[in-house]
Amino acid sequence: MIQLQDIHKSYNQQEVVSIPFFTFEKQIYWLKGINGSGKTTLLKIIAGLLPFEGDVVIEGKISLKKNRTEYLRLVNYVEAEPLYPSFLTGLDLLQFYRRTKGGNKEQSDRLIELLQVSSFIGNPVGTYSSGMLKKISLLLAFTGQPCFILLDEPLVTIDDKTVPVVNSIIRDYHEKQGIIFLLTSHQLFETDAFHVTHQLKMNHQTIHPL
């Protein structure tokens, strides 16, 4: 269970996120909203990338503000358009993530195989197409032992063959490990891939259940 507690975020005195209280249960959430509604800002807040007022608390005890390191070990995030230094290889990034987020070789090998990145993971990311980069960023998002995974537009730029693979990883991680997912997507998720139990809408700076 993850709680958003009195979250506020403003830019130039204009409030973009204002959520008094919200609880994420062990479910898969699909966050919808028009461009500029604050979806990505909310995801970045929960991922610890942006300063904000309020707090995010896991299981009532691990707070983003008070136990930041422990919190970040449990929350993984992938951006809609990920950016990495072009001289690093996918393997460099994976090893770096494993050293910080945890995770073992079996998990990495399995993800490399599922996402079919073995042919290019050893090359610098500067040589990747946007789809290849997205696959690597998804691989990193599934690395470690998170309890909450935030995926911003996970299906954008990846090929048709990979979409069902990503869906099945999400389903597996949720069913077997009880991981909570918060997804944003303008594309429709296949209804038979996994059960999106909650659809949310970002509107007027806050979250509304649909």
């Binding site: 390191t69 970040l72 993984n76 951006e79 950016l83 990495y84 072009s86 910080t100 987020k101």
Partner: peptide
């Protein structure tokens, strides 16, 4: 600049201050 553009993902990693 490099830290805030291409290394932004590092802020999401569990590394103590």
């Amino acid at each position: 600049k490099f830290e805030e553009s291409l290394m932004l993902f590092y802020r999401n990693l569990p590394v103590s201050m």
